[in-house]
């Protein structure tokens, strides 16, 4: 099997690479690339993302043909993709970080700033929070409900269709922490930094 971690200059991805190698380097060919041909021939794709929604979308668009290739991979070929953090947020149609920016549009909805109730809650939402699993997701196999995951973000994905939500977490409001729509998976938290439980999620994705 070949898993590609998309390297599109979206910030620091070494932790994502390390975690996938830790989990599966003996049985999976892990590629880190933005090469369109290599992405096309992958069995699974990981879309990381750090920084702002806009900076990640801009970085994707800077690589000619990358968005089209990802669209084809996910929408036409229905192959599994895991978006992490802003990687998940980009599934939305639109994001409002920095300025209004068009997303990939794979899951209808928007990405807006977490309402911190006039400063009552600190932003970014940084640290370990528990996930409340609200639907069976293939990547949550053998993950106990209320497991702790590591978060760091100030913006949240608000999907129109709530049935795509697979887990929520309590902060200033109930924040979407993961989605699953057919072959599209995303986590707002960082499985690569969420210790043993996080690695298990990565393992589940690889085993899909």
């Amino acid at each position: 099997m070949k898993v590609t971690i998309v390297d599109y200059n979206s910030g620091n991805i070494s932790s994502v690479i390390n975690s996938f190698e830790e989990v599966a380097k003996d049985r999976v060919n892990i590629e880190v690339t933005s090469d369109l041909i290599k992405i096309k021939s992958s069995d699974k794709v990981v879309l990381p993302g750090q920084g702002s929604f806009k900076s990640c979308i801009d970085a994707l668009n800077k690589i000619e043909g990358l968005t089209d290739t990802l669209n084809e991979f996910v929408i036409s070929n229905k192959k599994p993709l895991l978006g992490i953090c802003v990687g998940l947020q980009m599934f939305a149609e639109v994001g409002y970080e920095e300025t209004e920016t068009k997303g990939l549009g794979w899951i209808p909805g928007k990405v807006s700033k977490i309402d911190n109730q006039k400063g009552k809650y600190k932003l970014p939402h940084i640290g370990w929070n528990q996930i409340n699993i609200v639907k069976d997701s293939k990547i949550f196999q053998n993950i106990e409900n209320n497991s702790h995951m590591y978060f760091v973000h100030s913006y949240e994905f608000i999907p129109k269709d709530k049935t795509v939500i697979s887990s929520l977490t309590d902060y200033s409001s109930k924040i979407v922490c993961s989605v699953e729509k057919e072959n599209i998976f995303g986590t707002q938290f960082h499985p690569e930094k969420s210790d043993k439980m996080g690695l298990k999620i990565i393992n589940n994705f690889i085993n899909l």
């Binding site: 910030g11 620091n12 750090q50 920084g51 702002s52 900076s55 970014p124 940084i126 973000h153």
Partner: peptide, 8 residues
Amino acid sequence: SKKFGSQC
């Protein structure tokens, strides 16, 4: 923070 994101 602009280049790498505030999170880091």
